[in-house]
Each structure stands twice: as structure tokens, then as C-alpha cells.
Design a protein around this nucleic acid. Structure first.
Lengths: 117, 117
DNA sequence: CATAGTGTACTATCTACATAGTACACAGAT
DNA sequence: ATCTGTGTACTATGTAGATAGTACACTATG
């Protein structure tokens, strides 16, 4: 994985895992890699990996069974809620930024339509 | 000014100043506050303020006359270019994020239309 | 020439982030 | 009971960002 130096790595890994969960690349109830394995996969420190799981657990997206591992929540509502929050967050950020740049919503929509992909 | 703890303060001040320049709240050729005054206005350290100006100068948005102060560039092309880059950046970020969330461009446009403001 | 305002260059300190390494506690399997 | 895999806790180190304080050099003005 390629990291953006402007934002803490642990936040970037959290986002990556949330997207895996939202897009069901990792399914509800499924076991996540151990913190040590996660550290290897993402080339981060085991401490940072542990921090990632603690934060995901705090947000209710995952839960931990000591000695067993960390698992994705079985509560699909939590996962949907997480997706909603992320969508809302990036929409609000976008609107705020274009507003500051003096770009109207209509112009922004045109810009989006004009993108090839 | 209110700062986001997730991003370095000096980057946030740089963005704020760029928006002032783009929106002509500070005009082309105009003198910017001294680094010491900027530090007071934004409640940051004089060193951080100096760093802000060094970065803006590196990007060609401002220039410095030693002993005189820092001024907005007279090159309107540079300012327009800066605005274009910021617009492009936030559009690309937005599209990337909604794509990762499994939201299509059409859905995103609907979301934007449905915002009140 | 003296002064005030300015950019610039240091050193020092503090915090958050990230890494490195070690140790311990719990759960399941053999 | 032992072993393995797991989460958890701790100390130590390095770096970047931010702050604090000081000092110096340049420019315009009086």
C-alpha cells in the first residue's frame, strides 16, 4: 500500500480496512488478520496495527475476542452507518472546498460530468 | 481560525491564504502581513508563519523582498493556475473517494443536488 | 547615522506519530 | 500440561510539527 505523508498511517490503514468491510471484501463476522499479520501486510509496526484495531473496535465496526483475534461486527446496521458517514463526510468536504473556490454546485456537477472515467 | 488536528497547521494556513488570494480578498501585488503579524492573526508561532511564506514563495504565489515584506505575485496566470490546481485536486479526491465507496458519478450528482445549501 | 519594521537563522523544548523490541495474559488444540 | 496464536502492555528511540526565545541582516525613513 502507498501512503500519503500528509496523514497519519494508522488513519490511512483504518480507512482501507473500512472500505474492505463496506465493499464486503471482508464479510460481516469474518476474522481479520492478527495484528502481527496486519503489520506485515501493510508494512507497518505491530503497535500501529494494534492501534488500528483498537480504533475500529471503538467505532463499533469490529470487536475483539482476547486470544482469538479481531472480527468484523455482525451488525450490518453498523456497517451501513459507517458507509453513510464516510459518504456524508466526503460530500461535505467537497462542497465546502468548491464553495471556498467560488465554484457553484451546478458548475461542480458539470465538472463531474466532464470527467472521462 | 479553527484548525483541524488531523492536518499540519502550516498547511491549513497556506490554504487559507491561497483562498484569500484566489478570491481577491488580498489582491495581486498587495503586501501580506509581516510574518510576526501573521503569527498574531492566526495565533501561530512566528516560525510557523515564516514557513508558510517560504512555501507560498516556493509555489510562486508570493515573492519576498528582504526587509520589505512578502507580496502577492503580480502574475495573474499564477493565481489562476493555483485556483485550477486546487479545484482539480478536490474534484479528483472526491471522485476517488466516492468510487471507493461504490457510489457512481450519477448518484454523486444526485447527492449534490439534494443538498439544501 | 539611528531607528523601526522586516525576513532569516539559530537553539531548545514539547507532543504526536511511528518504529523496535520485549514481555505477559488469554484461548484453543494437541 | 504444553504449545501456538492471539491481544495487550510497556520502555526506548527517531522524526516531524509546533512552540518559545534570541539574534542578526537588510530596507526604508527620518
Amino acid at each position: 500500500m502507498q501512503y500519503d505523508s500528509k496523514t497519519p498511517i494508522y488513519l490511512q490503514v483504518i480507512t482501507a480496512l473500512k472500505l474492505d468491510i463496506i465493499n464486503e471484501r471482508i464479510k460481516s463476522g469474518e476474522k481479520l488478520p492478527s495484528s502481527r499479520d496486519l503489520a506485515v501486510q501493510y508494512t507497518i509496526n505491530p503497535n500501529t496495527a494494534a492501534r488500528v484495531y483498537q480504533e475500529l473496535e471503538r467505532e463499533g465496526v469490529c470487536y475483539t475476542k482476547r486470544g482469538m483475534g479481531t472480527f468484523v461486527t455482525e451488525d450490518m446496521g453498523k456497517i451501513k452507518q459507517c458507509r453513510q458517514e464516510m459518504a456524508k463526510g466526503c460530500l461535505e468536504d467537497f462542497l465546502k472546498q468548491i464553495n471556498e473556490l467560488g465554484i457553484t454546485k451546478e458548475e461542480a456537477i458539470e465538472m463531474i460530468k466532464n470527467t472521462t472515467k
